[in-house]
Design a protein around this nucleic acid. Structure first.
Lengths: 211, 211
DNA sequence: ATATGTGAAAGTTTTCACAGCA
DNA sequence: TGCTGTGAAAACTTTCACATAT
């Protein structure tokens, strides 16, 4: 096993592999080759072998990978073999969808508190969560052992939401708001921006298909 | 101007630049240097210059870029200087959030029809859209000149939704469902998967910070 | 004087090809 | 035999450094 920095692209693909392996586990497929997993993920098979090599040796030569073992090992290495308590900041349309999103909770990302700064929303109950004033973030963060913050505010309030989270001691943030947010060293922020993905798509559709 | 294939990472960053430039336009900043834009996007300045070079020469040496001109040029090159008619397939929690998402419409991605295969939902009106039976996709696609499909179904129905869209003649799809979907040559599909982003985040938080 | 545009260098990621092992 | 794990090659992306233009 190597101890080299794992590239971000590798981690992203790993999430894909986990998804594919979960499907195989459900279909009771016991063993899969790198070729088979590659086909399921639309990826090159040596890519998969290289990616896995960052974490260890999981395969059996001449055979392939035992689906269940590989899945377990990957979950452990990725840090998703446990529950992560998350705080949602911003309970608008998207925030409500996130609160009701079964998939997230199933995969161990549990939203345990929902915050908003709109006094008309505070106290309202959405999907069994009472909306809490953003000022109480720090206090609630300690009480519920929150580790991840999800920002789903309008863009102009995203930076403030991030500041609140960071001040409360949250180290990892995922930002759904279409805004660029600055964070100090040591804080990780990842972006999920729908319109960025749509721009990429629009561009691909606009460019004449090369032949 | 070069005529070389534009890398996907470049297009993704372009969406970021557009966002930053929009902010500058609003603040009435007239001119910006690659350095200035770089700072706003947390990117290297020569990266920006290289990215822009794929599309043309927009700057003035010794001065910088005229914000409004650059924004206009970028929008045109990216194909987002117009309206794209989109179809939503799957009106669950996420689908409803997308229908109500102002940002998307503002940026020219207009959801003009919402489909679902649940007979209890068909006919219901969400955000001024009457939910239509998925079987009518082809017919409605022609009528409303739909070019982009958005899949927001449960994962097990994502492939079927994609098939419907492709059969109707849609060439570009954005998939919000946590499922891998196969599409034939010539169809573009992009993924937006929250849990993938959360996995990346969980991994970064799990790995001891290197020093 | 200042900041772009771009070749060339450095760094990273992907793919190939095959040695090594069940 | 069949498939993994991995060095080496190819492809691609980022950064540097400076000639070039205003």
């Amino acid at each position: 096993m190597k101890t080299k920095r794992v590239p971000k692209v590798t981690v992203q693909r790993m999430a894909l592999y986990v998804q594919a392996l979960e499907g195989m586990l459900q279909k009771e497929i016991k063993v899969v080759s790198s070729e088979g997993l590659a086909a399921a993920c639309n990826v090159n098979s040596s890519q998969i072998r290289k990616d896995l090599a960052y974490f260890g040796e999981f395969g059996v030569r001449g055979v392939g990978y035992y689906v269940s073992d590989l899945l377990g090992a990957m979950r452990a290495y990725l840090g998703i073999d446990r529950v992560w308590n998350c705080a949602l900041v911003g309970v608008g349309n998207l925030g409500r969808a996130l609160l009701r999103h079964e998939q997230l909770a199933q995969r161990g990302f549990r939203i345990v508190a929902a915050f908003d700064c709109d006094p008309f929303k505070i106290g309202e109950v959405v999907a069994e969560h009472e909306i809490i004033c953003t000022r109480r973030l720090k206090e609630v963060k300690e009480e519920l052992a929150i580790e991840i913050g999800m920002i789903a505010t309008p863009p102009e309030r995203a930076q403030r939401a991030a500041n609140h989270l960071i001040e409360a001691g949250v180290k990892g943030i995922i930002n759904f708001a279409p805004a660029i947010v600055s964070v100090p060293e040591g804080i990780t922020i990842d972006y999920v921006d729908f319109s960025h993905s749509l721009v990429t798509l629009a561009f691909q559709l606009s460019v004449p298909p090369e032949d």
